[in-house]
Design a protein around this nucleic acid. Structure first.
Lengths: 211, 211
DNA sequence: TATATATTGTGAATATATTCACAGCGTGAT
DNA sequence: ATCACGCTGTGAATATATTCACAATATATA
C-alpha cells in the first residue's frame, strides 16, 4: 500500500468489479478471460492483465480468472476492512440525487451524514440519511469517524467546506464544485466538473462531425 | 481542427476560461501570468503555456496574457460559432439537478430538450427546459439539430438510448450511467461514473491515512 | 500419460503527457 | 534612447501509461 498505485488503475478496478459482479449475479459465469473483461470495460486485454498484476491477483492459463475470487481480491485491495464512513456536504438538487443514488448500495462505503446551511433541512432524513446543520459538522464527522466526503455546495462555499473537512480528519474528497480546492498534499481530491465535461463532449462532437 | 487535440488539454482550457472569467468579472484584472493561472488551475506554469501553444494564443513577455483576448481565443477554439444544442435523456433526480444547474448558464451551449420514459413528464417544463416522451426523441433531436447529449438514465437503458442518439446524429455524449457504451469511433463519450469516483476518493483517503 | 493449445504474466517497446531549462524578446525603468 | 529584467515559447528530457510480443504453463483432449 506504500508504493505508488496509479490513479487510473484504481478507477478501472472499481469498474472491473462492477462488471464482474454483473457476470456473477446475472449470467452465472464462473470464469472470465482478460479479453472478455477488457471488452466489457472498454480497455485492452493487456491493460486488464497489468491491472491484475498490480493487485497481485493471478489467473490461470486456459481458464482465465475465477470471478468470485477476483471480486474478493479487488475488494481486499480497494475496500476498507470495516465500514468506511462518507459525508455529503450540500443538500441541493445534486446532493439529494447522490443521496438517493447511494442509499443502501454499498454497505461498507456508506453516506452516514449530510450537511446543509439551510436550517430547515437540519434534522430531516433524506433517503435514509440524516441531515445536520453545518455547525455540527466537525463534531459529527469525528464522532462517526468520517474519512471521505462528497462536496456538492456552490462554488463560493467549497473552499471553506474543504478546509473544515480537512481539519476534521477527512482525507479523500469527491468535489462537484467547479473550483480547484487547496488542500494539503496528504488529502486526495477527485474532481467532477460537470460543466467542463459537457464542454469536452460538445467540443469533440463538433470535431468528429467536421471530419 | 484535424490534428489530434489532447483530451486533457480541452478540459483544462474549459477550466482556464472559467477562472479567467472570474478574474475579469470580479477582480477587474486585465493581464495574467502563466504561473498565476497555473496556481488557480492547480497545474504547472509550463502546462499552461503548452496549452496556449496548442490553441495558438500568444502572450507577451513581461505582461503575460491579455485576459479578455485569451477568453475570446479559448472561446473560438472550444465553442461552436452558433448555438450548439444539447439534449438530456432521463429526467430523474440527477437529470433534474443538471437541468437546474445549466438553466440559462451558457447561451451557446444549451440544453434544448429533455426526454423521459414517464408519460407524466412529457409536456412539462423543468427549469426552462421542455420535457418530451422518449418516442419523440429522433424527431425532436433532428428538428433541433442536437449534436450533444447527457445520459442520465439507469444503467439498463443506457445502451439503447445511446444507440438511438447515435442514429439521430448525436456525436458527443456525457454519460452518467455506469456502463461502457458501445458507439462508433466517430462518437465521443465522456464518462462520469460517480460510484467509481467515490471509490477512488475512499481508496486514497485510506492510503494517505495509512502512511 | 502425453500432446496441442489458448491464455496468462511480464520485460521491452512504444506512445502520451508533463516538466525542465533556456534563448529570445517586449516592457517598464532610467 | 538604452538597458536590465522577467516573462513567454519551445526543443529536449523526463515521467507516466499503454501496448506489444512471447516464454511459461495449466488444462482439455485423446
Amino acid at each position: 500500500m506504500n508504493v505508488q498505485i496509479p490513479d487510473k488503475t484504481v478507477g478501472r478496478l472499481s469498474l472491473y468489479r462492477r462488471l464482474l459482479s454483473n457476470l456473477l449475479g446475472i449470467e452465472k459465469v464462473k470464469f472470465v478471460f482478460s479479453h472478455q473483461l477488457a471488452k466489457d470495460a472498454g480497455v485492452t486485454a493487456a491493460q486488464v492483465r497489468r491491472d491484475m498484476m498490480i493487485i497481485g491477483y493471478s489467473g490461470s492459463p486456459k481458464r482465465g480468472y475465477a470471478i468470485e475470487e477476483l471480486v474478493e481480491s479487488i475488494g481486499q485491495f480497494l475496500d476498507a476492512p470495516d465500514l468506511q464512513a462518507v459525508a455529503l456536504i450540500g443538500v441541493g438538487n445534486l446532493g439529494r440525487a447522490i443521496l438517493t443514488y447511494f442509499a443502501g448500495r454499498r454497505p461498507n462505503l456508506r453516506i452516514v451524514a449530510a450537511f446543509d446551511n439551510d436550517p430547515n433541512k437540519a434534522g430531516t432524513v433524506i433517503s435514509e440519511c440524516r441531515c445536520y446543520a453545518m455547525q455540527e459538522m466537525p463534531e459529527v464527522l469525528e464522532k462517526k469517524n468520517v474519512t471521505t466526503a462528497i462536496i456538492t455546495v456552490p462554488a463560493g462555499q467549497a473552499q471553506d467546506v474543504a478546509d473544515l473537512l480537512v481539519s476534521s480528519g477527512v482525507r479523500g474528497m469527491l468535489n462537484f464544485a467547479p473550483v480547484n480546492l487547496r488542500v494539503p498534499a496528504s488529502v486526495y481530491v477527485e474532481d467532477m466538473d460537470i460543466t467542463t465535461s459537457l464542454e469536452k463532449a460538445a467540443f469533440f462532437a463538433r470535431c468528429r462531425t467536421a471530419s
